[in-house]
Design a protein around this nucleic acid. Structure first.
Lengths: 345, 345
DNA sequence: CTGAAAGCGCTTACAG
DNA sequence: CTGAAAGCGCTTACAG
């Protein structure tokens, strides 16, 4: 099958390529009605579709953005991606999504690949492992925004949860229901990934504000595969936690599995708080409490800013940190029956 | 920032553009060692990245495929997409994902858009509403594969579940646990969407094989928003069902919500069987039975065939229907306590 | 072993 | 109001 080009249309309509191009780009300022009609018919007759690749080469923009997500397995990521896609569609941008799999090398490769594909801008959930690369994009004034994670010393807009407050709300929620021995589990913190660090920080602050002791054995940051051992340790304490905060969906899953395998009934023997809006969880038992992130809003806003940066690439917009508040999704956790509230018990 | 082009590299290395191009494409057959080195260094020094858009225009291929999914909200879709992306990455293809939202007009627009972007091939979860469009792609021998849904009269490979068998397994599973009054809920069937039709078909066949009556009031196909009314009707029968099969995740959600709101305990008062591997469901209560689709395998195989078609576009491969078997994921449904098995009770 | 030239399918000043 | 020409950044026969 031979593809129809603008030349074919021009020949068929008896005009020049330029005129057809004007027509395609709706530059009708000086075009005769009759010419317009002839071109319209030629396009119709031949079933012509402009070649966007050729247009992109000439115009030096592709109307496509790249999204590099640190780990596609999180429900948070998929929800934000969906929101980004919605906003892009409204603005006639296409989206190419790549999964860095928490691997800085993959992330770097994707950045290069997407730049080679001439995407107009990038939304990155940064692994944090490519400082130089991030810096060089800033230096070249290439449009980029970050989601979920702050990279210290890199001057790029970030859209993320108010993690400290989210943890505080979680602790307060549990405290209000009589819990004073509260644990927290997160993935590894070696690479200083913002949400993990900040959620632990908020957790500690909240405990201090409530004048509760911070027990370092109640804080476990490790690979999800190893988490069960961490939990075992936590629960071999003489006074084990009566509540656990799970920093994301994957760790939440491990906590639930651990509880099931060890016969801990939820929420009676163990109260559980998670983050993110995880499908089905709120409708099923056991009753958990979830604090959800406004993923839709975050994705929209990130995409909007990126598109703005693309369209006004000359005007420097000062970059800043955009914080979003969590919402209590579900959570009719009953009172802790075993351990009453210390201030009232 | 001015982008570095192949001309800059050529000038810097003191060779011609052609030679640099040869180098980039690893056509080293006749290239002098010293030339190779000079080019390598020039690329390094200048930080040159080839412009893939220009290459695509010349080569008339983009190494990109499009995926048009009927509805991104199903966990099935996201899982298959992930598998497609994996296979594509291994073969150096990029993926652009579009969500048709069960809307044939959107689907048509996306097809045109993706063709205009010169994608090398398409994976479609067809809405079924664009017969002419599908046909025209077949006629032009444009590489396409379908997933999940058969479109009658269109000669395109399809990758989908053995839905009839899946329903039979579901019915048998329930029957083995003493259930004889089994309902089924699906999204609307007006557009003859394959999995819905076939799952109802398999359900009926299974009942007949077991010599159980088929009660049309136990079959509800409607928009998820309306499903609660359908369920209400079903359960106002003098002898309401003791088990429900939900055809996908969205209908499953409605069934669970309905049970919760109407105080039906699962699985004691109502056994529930769903399809797809839905995160968290198998670990939480109430105990459901899920039959999962081999989404990973399906996505891989679909992508592989598409890539093969792209690479051997001349050799016609006869198209066929590729069926996959479901697996029992979880399901320790207890015996039905209220209604014993008629053959044993 | 390497280079000059043509061309992929568009857009865009510019001329008339 | 419309057309001829140049050019986007590559690749690819072909010549030498």
């Amino acid at each position: 099958m031979k593809r129809i080009t603008i030349s074919d249309v021009a020949k068929f309509a008896g005009v020049s390529k330029s005129t057809v191009s004007q027509y395609l780009n709706k530059r009708f300022d000086y075009m005769g009605e009759e010419t317009k009609l002839r071109i319209e018919q030629a396009i119709e007759q031949l079933g012509y579709q402009p070649n966007i690749v050729a247009r992109s080469l000439k115009q030096k923009r592709t109307s496509t953005i790249g999204v590099i997500v640190s780990n596609i397995l999180h429900s948070f990521s998929t929800q934000v991606i969906r929101a980004i896609e919605d906003t892009c569609r409204e603005n006639d941008f296409h989206v190419i999504v790549c999964n860095a799999d928490d691997n800085p090398t993959k992330e770097e490769n994707y950045v290069h690949m997407l730049l080679a594909k001439q995407v107009d801008g990038l939304v990155i959930f940064p692994t944090g492992g490519n400082l130089d690369l991030y810096q060089s994009m800033v230096k070249q004034n290439y449009p980029v925004v970050f989601v979920d994670r702050i990279v210290e010393g890199v001057d790029i807009d970030v859209f993320l949860l108010d993690n400290v407050n989210a943890s505080k709300l979680a602790v307060q929620h549990l405290f209000d229901r009589g819990h004073t021995r509260i644990g927290i589990v997160t993935p590894p913190v070696e690479r200083r990934i913002t949400p993990r660090i900040e959620r632990i920080e908020g957790y500690k602050k909240a405990l201090e504000d409530l004048q509760l002791p911070v027990n370092e054995n109640f804080i476990k940051s490790m690979n999800v595969e190893l988490l069960k051992y961490g939990l075992k340790e936590m629960f071999s304490e003489p006074e084990p936690p009566t509540a656990i905060i799970a920093a994301n969906d994957l760790t939440l899953f491990e906590v639930l599995k651990f509880a099931k395998e060890n016969g801990l009934t939820i929420p009676d023997q163990l109260a559980v708080v998670g983050f993110d809006d995880i499908p089905f969880v709120t409708i099923l038992e056991p009753t958990l409490t979830l604090f959800s992130q406004p993923t839709f809003d975050m994705g929209n806003r990130a995409a909007e800013l990126l598109i703005q940066k693309i369209q006004e690439q000359d005007t420097e917009i000062e970059s800043r940190i955009h914080r979003f508040q969590p919402t209590l999704l579900a959570g009719n956790l009953p009172e802790n029956k075993d351990k009453h509230h210390p201030n009232f018990g």
